[in-house]
Design a protein around this nucleic acid. Structure first.
Length: 410
DNA sequence: TTTTGAGTTGTTCGA
DNA sequence: GTCGAACAACTCAAA
């Protein structure tokens, strides 16, 4: 869908290949007498290594090679603290980084370099499996730059002023949902900031929204300056953390069968939309890492393969944050209580019931947030295979996590 | 140069 | 029922 949108927009026929980039580019460059190679930069170790090699390889062959930054406000190497190190705390990072960004002057130009030409290349990749589970995503997402621009414009004019309060409510669905567009490069964070500036809005809600762009930038800084952000804990004390190992518990978490309604509803949102509300990412993350005591990298990998907005920097940094091993991380003693989180942020259980409608029979009381308190009613549901008993006791597993995290202290 | 205060997102316990 | 303290340790930036 995304590629079709690009083809229409630029009136070109895209060539899509997989395999080794340098080899494939060589083939195309030779075959079609291409003289110029242009791309937007990426920031992981492997990407940088690969792209640097490609750049020098083709430069040596007298191909014009030029790279740009469209993915970030600032290049990670532009932002350092006074001692020449990268920032480990968000607030001073963002203060500095946003200032640096505002001092830049950009001139956007329509790119006239893109020209269509005839070719006989065929796309050999099957992007989508034959099973059509993804078709329902069409109900939630419209790929492409035009859709992204429209979405952010509407959001800024109509909803951003209450972002700071409403963003916490999965039942309200009042976030901008721009993340998949950012992830696929359909919109640049620079365009988002520019549109916010042009709106002349400046209030706490707008600043909170901007700081979320800031967290994305901060994550890229961490990705750039650390080694293997998605597998190696930034805090070295976590190298020997006593994670549990339970394929069964992990599977139940992914399937939304933990018996904790908010966690299960959130995991179901991924199946339905390919996306999950940010607060729920913290709730399910805390549950996996602390209540189940399973390694955060499992969650990182699961999100990687299931979220439309999967971003290599934000995802890894987010999981490290919730596990407590990241930069400026959630402290070890902060174990989200999913029941309290439901009561605070889904008070009418509207979000829960949207994804687990069979729990409606509990709705007359607060037991909809913790069905196990009404044993009789839950037993009847379990018998009909409509819901499950909780896989952990929240209080016990919280204490187990606190004990395990004791050892990350000095 | 050294010191000091503050720092995304929470929960529980005891007064 | 409400409220503050405790739950660590460390980085950063201002003074």
């Amino acid at each position: 869908m995304h590629s079709k949108n690009l083809e229409q927009k630029f009136n070109v026929k895209l060539i899509i290949t997989d395999g080794e980039a340098k080899k494939n580019l060589s083939h195309l460059i030779e075959k079609y007498k291409i003289s110029s190679l242009i791309w937007n930069r990426l920031y992981s170790d492997q990407s940088i290594k690969r792209d640097t090699e490609i750049k020098s390889f083709f430069k040596n062959k007298n191909i014009h090679v030029e790279t740009f930054n469209s993915h970030l406000l600032n290049e990670p190497w532009e932002i350092q603290n006074n001692s020449g190190q990268f920032f480990k705390v968000f607030t001073p990072y963002w203060k500095t980084a946003f200032k640096v960004y505002l001092n830049k002057k950009f001139s956007y130009q329509k790119n006239s370099l893109i020209k269509s030409f005839k070719h006989n290349e065929k796309t050999k990749i099957d992007f989508l499996s034959n099973r059509s589970w993804y078709e329902k995503f069409n109900n939630y997402w419209s790929p492409g730059e035009d859709a992204a621009l429209k979405k952010i414009e509407t959001y800024i004019s109509s909803h951003i002023d209450k972002y700071d309060v409403n963003r916490n409510r999965p039942d309200f669905d009042q976030t901008s949902r721009i993340s998949p567009h950012l992830r696929f490069g359909e919109i640049s964070p620079r365009v988002i900031v520019e549109k916010i500036q042009n709106s002349k809005k400046s209030n706490n809600a707008v600043n909170t929204y901007l700081s979320e762009i800031g967290w994305r930038e901060f994550s890229y800084s961490l990705l750039y300056y650390s080694e293997d952000l998605s597998t190696k804990p930034i805090n070295p004390k976590f190298k020997k953390f006593p994670w549990r190992s339970s394929k069964k518990d992990f599977a139940l978490w992914t399937e939304g069968k933990t018996g904790i309604p908010l966690v299960d509803a959130a995991m179901s949102q991924i199946y339905e939309e390919g996306w999950m509300h940010n607060r729920l990412r913290m709730v399910v993350g805390s549950f996996l890492v602390k209540n189940l005591l399973l390694n955060w990298t499992l969650g990182e990998q699961y999100f990687q393969k299931s979220l439309l907005d999967y971003d290599e920097a934000s995802n890894a940094a987010g999981w490290q944050w919730i596990a407590g091993c990241g930069a400026d991380a959630s402290p070890y003693f902060r174990v989200f209580n999913p029941v309290l989180q439901s009561e605070k942020f889904d008070p009418q259980a509207q979000f829960i019931l949207k994804y687990i409608p069979q729990l409606k029979i509990f709705n007359s009381s607060k037991t909809v947030f913790e069905p196990y308190l009404d044993k009789k009613l839950l037993d009847s549901l379990v018998k009909e295979k409509k819901y499950v008993n909780p896989i952990v006791d929240l209080k016990e597993s919280r204490n187990r996590a606190l004990d395990a995290y004791q050892q990350t202290k000095s």
